Simulated assay, not measured.
Amino acid sequence: MKKTILLIEDNEQNSYLTTFLLETHGFHVATAADGAIGIDAATKLLPDLILLDIQLPLMDGYAVAKALREIDALKPIPIIAVTSYAMVGDREKCLAAGCTGYIEKPINPETFVTEISTFLRS
């Protein structure tokens, strides 16, 4: 059975590339263009993994991660921040908000799927 990944990303180009890479490697990808839609989708889908952009409209990724972590059914699901925020302390801020991991943008197409695969539950 295919693993489902929820991608919460507002940039169409980033969403396209990420979805292409993941689907090429056999994953099912659901997308959400903002935090509120992403939270709703996560609650309904219960994906195997959530990829979360931090710089989102209306509700930033930190708030989204915190909201996702407040939902009991979503607590065991890994949330990976995929963000262009790469200053000192940004990784720690993502982890403090509830993210399980952190990947800097731009993503490396050659290593991205391997990176996120390490966070998937068996």
Rank of each mutant, 00 (worst) to 15 (best):
M1T: 13
K2M: 12
K3P: 00
L6I: 10
L6T: 04
L6D: 00
L7D: 06
I8Q: 00
I8S: 01
D10Q: 06
N11D: 14
Y16R: 05
T19G: 03
F20Q: 12
F20V: 08
E23T: 10
H25K: 15
G26W: 01
T31L: 02
A32E: 04
A33F: 11
D34G: 02
D40V: 08
A42C: 07
K44N: 08
K44V: 05
L45D: 08
L46A: 11
L49N: 06
I50E: 03
L51D: 12
L51S: 03
L51V: 04
I54A: 04
L56V: 01
P57S: 06
P57Q: 02
L58T: 12
L58P: 00
D60K: 00
E70R: 11
I71H: 08
D72S: 08
P76C: 02
I77Y: 06
I80S: 02
V82A: 02
T83S: 14
V88K: 15
G89C: 06
D90S: 14
R91E: 15
C94L: 07
L95V: 06
A97L: 15
Y102K: 08
Y102V: 06
Y102E: 12
Y102H: 10
K105E: 07
P106M: 13
N108G: 03
T111D: 00
E115H: 05
E115C: 06
E115D: 15
I116T: 04
R121N: 10
